[in-house]
Amino acid sequence: MSVNGITIALKDLRVEFRTMRMIVTMVIFSLMVIMAFRFAFLFYSVEAEPTIIAPILWVTFTFAGMFGLVSSFSKEKDTGSLQGLMLCPSDRFSIYLGKLLSNLVLLLIVDFAALLFFSVFFDFDYGGNIVPIVSLVMLGSVAFTIVGTLVAGLSVNLKGRESALTILMLPLIILTVLMPAIIATSKALDGQIGDAWGEIRIIGMFALVYLALSYLLFEYVLEA
């Protein structure tokens, strides 16, 4: 990662942890989603149903994550400081990398909070599967953020950018990140992580494809 990318990420995280503008919203939103699912499954024991647990977790990660992505470029666009970044002597991809890193840190914090909320509200013990589950959450979050940061950059110049981000992003991640992550997490919850290599490969491959696309496109994305 370029030095300027790290500098941008550290600046973003400093601003975020000083204001707690997005992280609090994202964590509370994830809590609300988990609680909504708890009420939906009030008379249902999910303990023995990894095929239900995994979608609950990934729907929570996805929609909470989108909150953070929307604001990753939009506030700087509105204040004009995005132009300040674009005027710095580095390629525009380093802006992407900086945003990618700061978005990822925020998303991982929300992911871990959501895992904890799920455990508390569903009285669920991850047991010996916690390491593979956390690893899958991290891999899926990296892929999600790679796509999301590109789409957030693309949508920042559009009218109605919040809805544009969701509309543009979901088709890109459903088959390439979300479904494989849900299937792999179901297998991990069932203690069968060894059977999830196919899904892990799909997520990893598409993450690399989207990263390469971002490298090629981002020079033009912010100017659009």
Partner: peptide
């Protein structure tokens, strides 16, 4: 437009841009 960050101090803003310019 100033290109500055309201949530950072003047010192932090200048340090940030100095790093960005190498």
């Amino acid at each position: 437009v100033s290109y500055l960050y309201d949530e950072l101090s003047a010192l932090e803003n200048l340090r940030f841009y100095a790093k960005m310019y190498g």
